[in-house]
Design a protein around this nucleic acid. Structure first.
Lengths: 157, 157
DNA sequence: ATACAGATGGTCAGTAAAGGTCAAACAGAA
DNA sequence: TTCTGTTTGACCTTTACTGACCATCTGTAT
């Protein structure tokens, strides 16, 4: 992973480690406590949740305010191997934004359906082949490419 | 080419030395730091990356802006594999006919750079994604797809 | 019930900290 | 000269982080 890390990266890793460690599907935290642990303002936690634990990336975040408030982070269940192709077709569709594509890759990575190396190559090729294209066109090209590359890899093993 | 090595050459050698030295296949740098080290403007680093660490040469460069930003340089494959990648870039080009593509696949199969199964999937995807397109367009789409899929397989584990 | 207080978390806009782009100037070789 | 590759700097985009202010929940006193 990254050697150079921002605070947000550290918090992200910490939360993911907790999720892995507890073998639970979900995890509850108190915003202030996490903020104190990392010596930052509480809103930093929201930033991390928003950017790293989005729905796109396969997480659901629930929370409650007031006394006894909490933030619950839920990692969505990985798809079964068999269903993944269908899911990819649905998610990618005819057109996909760069951010959505990244979310999809992140999710596949999270659940070990994709190697880090393959993800890196896919990202690079997507960027390379869509740069300079007009947005609508880029989104279509990205969809075709992403779909093909993922299906190719999944059919392989 | 200048007799005396240009600054860009020095930076290139420095980065390659770091890659060799660390035995890693990737390396992270901070653009400003490298620029300070070589006493040049930061954009000089971009120039070096663009001209010396391109995809065609077997490297992938990822980066992130903002606080805690970085540039990651990944060396994908040893020399001979990189040569194959270069050859693929040249052979496929911007546009490729179906028969040419088939010839390329056959050659890669012959030399065991491609499994039979992968070839089957690639053929299927190429057909599926280009059918119905006007010929010129189909040839372009085929080129982009073929290139991406082959490079992905060759770079992957 | 109502009202208030304390305890949480949420939002948003502003600032800072990276890296990216592009075109013009420059330098060497043919 | 002319062509190609190098170097620079002004300006742009993205990401991270903070803090002031807002919304919501619980509990308790009236």
């Amino acid at each position: 992973m990254t050697l150079i890390s921002s605070l947000a990266d550290h918090i992200e890793r910490y939360i993911k480690a907790l999720l892995d460690q507890t073998e639970q599907r979900s995890l509850e935290i108190r915003r202030v406590e996490l903020a104190e642990l990392f010596e930052c303002v509480p809103s930093q936690i929201n930033y991390v949740l928003k950017t790293r634990f989005s729905n796109e990336r396969g997480y659901i975040v629930e929370s409650r305010r007031g006394g006894g408030g909490y933030i619950r982070i839920i990692r969505l269940e990985p798809r079964h191997r068999r269903d993944i192709c269908t899911w990819i077709y649905e998610t990618v569709g005819d057109s996909i934004e760069a951010e959505e594509a990244e979310g999809l890759l992140a999710q596949l990575l999270d659940h070990d359906h994709l190697s880090r190396k393959d993800a890196v190559v896919i990202r690079s090729l997507l960027t390379q082949e869509t740069q300079g294209l007009e947005k609508t066109l880029a989104n279509r090209a990205r969809a075709v490419l992403l779909r093909s590359m993922l299906l190719l890899l999944l059919h392989g093993s």
